[in-house]
Design a protein around this nucleic acid. Structure first.
Lengths: 193, 193
DNA sequence: ATAATTTTGAAACGTTCATTTCAAATAAAA
DNA sequence: TTTTATTTGAAATGAACGTTTCAAAATTAT
């Protein structure tokens, strides 16, 4: 009976995510989102429920999208260490591809609203825990395979990699020199060998 | 002849910096700044020239303040490597002291407006270059003293430390567990040994 | 066709925004 | 005390903000 959603949900989210990524949450206006998505104001409210809600949806969509990309790329990994190398290369590619890199949407969210909205903080903490677990698993695999040293536990190296990646993504916003970025990657990885 | 400024400039800047640090640039309103500084609206415009100008002044003041703190703490350093350890401990202290850590004002600025206002981008690039040079010098010193390995050049390790510190400061926003943070520091430093 | 339900467009909501205005208060120099 | 320059306070400015409203258009199942 009802009229059904006509717009392409994925496209709308992609566009909205792009706005939030470029401007951050606070600087992104509802008008920016209307313009980018092509949706009507009220349609956004009907279908996504306000700015904060849309932002959360974008964060989740960004997370899912990245997780897919990572899984895809890492399926070719020869071992745990190589998987981490491929992961950093993926980030490097993203930084170099964008003329004006805006870093990681989620890391940007940490610095912009890390300790403000509880809903956001919750998402960020879950993301952090999940990502550290993911990294720790790769470390453990690499250690079992003999490619990563056992100076530290998988959890400890997982924390280190998490922190390193956040730094790398942030550094890439200002620094787009490929040699410099490759140097940083090499040094991060060297620690594990 | 003229009436002179009555307010304490340092206090006003400290208060304004605190507002920007907690909320970021965009979420900080002029009213927040009026409330925090105790100054009148027009006094802020007369003496500091608008929000963006005040923000820039706060960034510079934050930079200077931190540079002093660092120089102070690092004057006791036994060698180049120890200086870097003391530096990371200084950041750790800051994270643990604040109940709700907001990271580094300048790193937050990178992610919020790293590629938007040219005046800001310029400041951030100068800050980055200066900081990497500072770190590279410590590395070089540590290498000459035999405390830091020579697997990479001072410049390369300086880049690595810069990226690592950015990551550490961002990680501290979400993660306030002392053990976890200490682990990260230990691993970063281990790379240099 | 008719009925049911949603999207859509445009306007309006009340708030808050950064910034300006300007007369009054202030204080140091003449 | 008068002059001079500045700060101050309070109000006003107009634009932009996120959100709501609601009648009209649209679309699908009956």
């Amino acid at each position: 009976m009802p009229k059904v959603e006509t717009f392409n949900r994925d496209f709308v989210l992609k566009q909205a995510t792009s706005v939030f990524h470029e401007k951050g949450y606070n600087a992104a206006s509802m008008q920016d989102l209307v313009d980018a998505t092509g949706l009507n104001r009220s349609s956004i409210y009907n279908s996504f429920g306000g700015k904060m809600n849309l932002y959360m949806t974008c964060l989740k969509s960004y997370q899912d999208h990245y997780f897919l990309q990572i899984n895809n790329k890492l399926s070719n990994a020869k071992n745990g260490l190589n998987a981490l190398e491929l992961l950093l290369e993926l980030y490097l590619k993203d930084i170099l591809e964008d003329k004006r890199d805006m870093g990681c949407l989620i890391t940007n969210c940490v610095t912009e609203m890390g300790n403000q909205e509880p809903i956001i903080t919750n998402f960020l903490n879950n993301n952090r825990e999940g990502f550290i677990d993911f990294l720790s698993d790769l470390i453990e695999r690499g250690q079992n395979e003999g490619f990563i040293n056992k100076n530290s536990t998988p959890k400890e190296y997982g924390l280190y990699m998490y922190s390193s990646i956040q730094g790398f993504r942030t550094t890439g916003i200002l620094l787009s020199n490929k040699n410099d970025l490759t140097t940083i990657i090499k040094t991060i990885i060297q620690t594990l060998k």
